[in-house]
């Protein structure tokens, strides 16, 4: 039944995760940073599902579902915050909102 090695799932998951992290670091636009975040979240989902496939469990899939739901909430709130920032500051890049700098 297990024709795909679980290590392959983890390799893909890790690749997607670090790509998401890299996107968060290098992206300037706030919306694209949020999209990179979504990518990283999906990478975690891949790892969960792959582990389920390997171990014959369903908990990973259930957590994947929760993550999808939370990602939806996160996207809604995050985009709302970005829109609010844009409305008050007319900026859309991360280096413009540095009010918390030391």
């Amino acid at each position: 039944m297990k024709t795909i090695p679980v290590e392959a799932y983890f390799a893909v998951s890790t690749a997607l995760f670090v790509l998401g992290l890299l996107g968060m670091i290098v992206r300037r636009n706030l919306v694209t940073v949020l999209m990179s975040l979504e990518l990283a979240l999906n990478a975690v989902n891949v790892a969960f599902v792959g582990a389920d496939y390997h171990m014959g469990l369903v908990e990973g899939q259930i957590f994947a579902l929760f993550i999808i739901a939370l990602a939806a909430a996160e996207a809604a709130v995050g985009l709302g915050i970005i829109i609010a920032i844009f409305r008050y500051r007319l900026v859309d890049s991360t280096d413009e909102i540095t009010d918390m700098r030391g």
Partner: peptide, 16 residues
């Protein structure tokens, strides 16, 4: 999680 979704929705509407 469903409660979090609801709160997130209300929060997004309020913020945005």
């Amino acid at each position: 999680v469903s409660l979090v979704l609801l709160i997130g929705m209300i929060g997004a509407v309020l913020i945005g």
